[in-house]
């Protein structure tokens, strides 16, 4: 199971072992990681599952899709080059060791 680490704005780290096929959003919600709201439940409609991916890891993620690109324009916290919607990050073996930073606010 690939391990993904979530770091909140206070610096608190949570590392989860995530089943391949589960999204980074689902794992966070399911394990009680605060800081991801996921209002639309992963339908790529709300942009409240926003995360910043550690810069050097961007390349190992699947590309940003059309729906994700559109929704990323409406994030509550600043959009940066390393912004992703965690509901669209479905965990694969290549994501082992992924580190995501939680934004200031999701709403």
């Amino acid at each position: 199971m690939p391990r993904v680490t979530y770091i909140d704005t206070a610096g608190k780290e949570t590392t989860l072992d995530i089943d391949v096929g589960t999204s980074v959003m689902q794992a966070a919600v399911f394990n009680g990681v605060d800081g991801i709201v996921a209002e639309c439940g992963g339908s790529c409609m709300c942009a409240t599952c926003h995360v910043y991916v550690r810069d050097d890891q961007l390349a190992k993620l699947p590309p940003v899709g059309e729906d994700e690109e559109a929704m990323l324009e409406g994030t509550a916290s600043e959009r940066r080059p390393n912004s992703r919607l965690s509901c669209q990050l479905v965990v694969s073996a290549e994501m082992e060791g992924l580190v995501v930073y939680l934004p200031e606010t999701q709403t």
């Binding site: 790529c44 059309e66 729906d67 690109e69 559109a70 929704m71 324009e73 409406g74």
Partner: peptide, 10 residues
């Protein structure tokens, strides 16, 4: 047309 929707909201 998700991009239209995103702009529509704004």
């Amino acid at each position: 047309r998700p991009a239209d929707h995103a702009q529509a909201r704004r």
